[in-house]
Each structure stands twice: as C-alpha cells, then as structure tokens.
C-alpha cells in the first residue's frame, strides 16, 4: 500500500474544463456537488482506502526566522504566488494506477449545469518509511 496526496488548488493548477465558480451555480447544482464529495469520501472509507481529508482557508501568511531574540518576520499573502492549496485528501491504495483512477473520479465532481468540473488535481506519492527487507 502506498499513500498518495490528492491536492486541490485555489490557484496554480491549469484551468478546469467547466470552470464556472460555485456562486454562479444553481442551488441544486451546489447540493449535488456537496453530495458527490460526501459520497466519494464515504465510499473510500468503505473500501479501506481513505486516510484523511481537510480543507484550507484561502488566507495564508509567509513567516520566517529573523534572528535570535527577534520576533519572526511575516509577510504576504503574496498576490504573485502561483500556488494556493485549497485542500487535500490522503488515500492509501495498492497501486499508482488506482490513485490516478480515484483522482480522475474526484475530478468528475459535478459543477455548473450538473456537468463534471474536470478540475485538475495533483497526485503526489508520500515518501514512505524504508522497508525491512532490502535484499
């Protein structure tokens, strides 16, 4: 089993096919989308492949160390930053192909007009602990 991170972006991913923002959907379309997301997570839980899922607020701040005895420097949010993470789902699956298939299904979540959003999701494998048997 390998763990994969399915990353959803507010910004930084290529534009989705059906990119109409949610506040321009009908209430039924919003409902259908939320139901799809809940069903998807529930199905992965039932197959024993779901690990975690979280959503992030769009606001963030960059912070860095500024030397002994000084408070950390904060800056941002930077408008020019290309990447903005919206949330993630962690799955634990047998193969890379399975991870891709699930990400594909998640990207088919319905949006405006009840049609799939075709949103670009990023699939990233976790670096795992070294195996016991190495030879």
């Amino acid at each position: 089993m390998t763990k994969y991170l399915l990353l959803k972006h507010y910004r930084g991913a290529p534009e989705a096919v059906n990119a109409v923002p949610m506040d321009q959907w009908t209430p039924e379309e919003v409902e259908d989308h939320l139901q799809f997301m809940a069903d998807f997570a529930a199905r992965l839980e039932s197959t024993g492949e779901y690990v975690d899922g979280q959503a992030l607020s769009p606001e963030g701040t960059f912070v860095r160390y500024d030397g002994e005895g000084r408070p950390p420097v904060t800056d941002g949010p930077f408008a020019e930053t290309k990447d903005l993470i919206a949330g993630w789902m962690v799955i634990d699956v047998d193969t890379y192909e399975r991870a891709l298939a699930l990400a594909g299904e998640l990207s088919a979540a319905p949006g405006a007009g009840g049609k799939p959003i075709h949103e670009w999701l990023e699939v990233r494998p976790f670096l795992s602990a070294p195996p016991t048997v190495t030879e």
Partner: peptide, 13 residues
C-alpha cells in the same frame, strides 16, 4: 462555507 455557498447560489438564481 457550504451554507453560505448555497445562499449565494440561491440569490444568483
């Protein structure tokens, strides 16, 4: 967030 998205969708419609 979901509740507010629904409100936005309802009024836009």
């Amino acid at each position: 967030r979901h509740h507010l998205s629904r409100q936005a969708a309802r009024i836009s419609q």
